[in-house]
Every structure is written in C-alpha cells, then in structure tokens.
C-alpha cells in the first residue's frame, strides 16, 4: 500500500528550478532512498514533503489525505517527522529535554493540568520521560541524558536528532543526509537503527548523495539529477543503469 504519493511536484528558487516534475509512490513499511549528486534537489524534495516549502504545482497525498497547504507543524500530527541535513538541535537544552520536546503532539491531558499539576499531569510527565529514556537507550545516549545537546560529538548529535524525530511517533520518517560528518562505525550504527525502525512499522525516506551507503538499506531508490527524475527502481537496477552511472561520473562514489 502506498503511504505517500507525489504527483508532478515543481519548486523553484529565484529562477532556479530545484525540483521539476517529480512523481513517486512510497510504499508503506519500506526504506525509500532519494539519491543524486549535490544540487540535484533531494533536500528540496524532503522540504516539500515535510512542509517547510510548498510546491508551485503538483500534489502530495499522505495516507489518502492531501497535504496541500498544510504547514510543517500540522504534518507532524499526521505522522511525518524529519531530521535536518545541518543538525538543528536545541543546543542549550539537555539531551533528555530535546527528546521530551518531541512529545509535543502526544500530551493528551486537559489544559488546566498545566496550571495545577494533578495526578494525570504527573503520570503524563513520567510516561514521556520513560519513553524518552527508552528512545535514548535505543540510540545509545542514555548515559548522557543530562548533558547539554550542544556539548555532544557530531555523531551523537545525529543520533539525538534521530531519537527526537522518533519521539513524535511518526508513520513516515524523513532523514536528510544521515551519513554527513559521521565515521564508518557511526554510519553503520545509524543504518542499523534505521532498519530496526522500519521493522517496527515506520516508513523511512533517506536522502543521501552517497549512493553506496543506501544500497544495503533501501528497498527502492529514486535518482534525481538537476531537479529531475532520472531513474527509479530497486538498488540492483539502479546500479546497472547507465544514465545513473553517467550522472555520478566524475568523482562521486560509485
């Protein structure tokens, strides 16, 4: 079943057409990768799906519902979460508080509890913290829960951002350039967590320019070049495709 469907998306910035006529169907429960050389429009695609940008034309349908005009924060409630290419954590907050902030859409206690902190409030707080600790344990940061997010290493920050996105309990998780700035061991660890997440029923979209990296995790790959659709298929098909090879020729990993 298709979870997210894009039809004829267009987006340009000051005359530069970043995304041109992109259509794709992302099946539920898969890892879907969007790859391409730098400047291919991959991140723009991700920003269109998450709602940071609105497309000039074309449509997005998520679980049967149109996303047209919905701002980013409303899409989170529907179950779309994301991480950022340039990590954007709440640097002055603790590791735990970063994840706890991710539960924003899942507090369902009456508003007056915020003022009088009754029993339901305390249960809700305890549940959020327990869930957050579970997520931190999942990404291996439980021991650092009191540290300021800004003081973590780069690899740890990526893991924390991943955990924070999971806290929103997404159906669809968008991951922007997960490997950027990570060493090989950290990349492996992150890919492993991504596969675990998929097994738990979350559909994952990975945007990545390093093609080799996604070959082992992706079920399906969309290749973009200069904002356009170049090829879409299973990893093995992508590897054999001559158009993809020529787009990547000249230094990028292949």
């Amino acid at each position: 079943m298709t979870l997210l469907s894009a039809k004829g998306l267009h987006k340009s910035f000051g005359g530069v057409r970043a995304v041109r006529d992109i259509s794709c169907d992302i099946p539920e429960g898969t890892v879907f990768a969007i790859i391409g050389p730098n400047g291919a429009g991959k991140s723009t695609m991700l920003n269109l799906i998450s709602g940071v940008y609105q497309p000039e034309s074309g449509s997005l349908t998520f679980a049967g519902q149109t996303l047209a005009g919905l701002p980013a924060y409303r899409r989170v409630r529907l179950g779309i979460a994301r991480t950022f290419q340039k990590i954007r954590l709440f640097k002055q907050l603790s590791v735990l508080d970063n994840v706890v902030a991710g539960f924003h859409v899942h507090h369902d206690i009456p508003a007056w509890h915020y003022l009088l902190h009754g029993g339901a409030f305390r249960r809700d707080q305890a549940r959020c913290r327990a869930d957050a600790m579970e997520l931190l344990a999942f990404v291996g940061l439980a021991a650092r829960r009191e540290a300021l997010a800004g003081s973590l290493s780069y690899g740890e920050q990526r893991m924390l951002e991943f955990a924070r996105a999971l806290a929103t309990k997404p159906k669809l998780l968008l991951i922007d350039e997960p490997a950027a700035g990570l060493n090989a061991a950290e990349v492996d660890s992150l890919l492993d967590r991504i596969l675990t997440t998929r097994k738990q029923g979350v559909t994952v979209v990975v945007v990545e320019h390093n093609m080799e990296l996604v070959m082992n995790v992706a079920d399906r790959i969309l290749v973009m070049d200069y904002g356009q659709h170049l090829f879409e298929g299973a990893p093995a098909e992508v590897q054999k495709n001559p158009a993809v090879a020529s787009a990547y020729l000249g230094g990028e990993l292949m």
């Binding site: 980013a72 508080d97 902030a101």
Partner: peptide
Amino acid sequence: TAIREDEVSAASLGIN
C-alpha cells in the same frame, strides 16, 4: 524553550 532555541526545529516536532 524549543521555540526559543530553534523555530524550524520546533515546527518539525509539531509545534505551532
């Protein structure tokens, strides 16, 4: 505080 630290990030967590 999430808004204070980073608005784009806050919006990505569903905060209006």
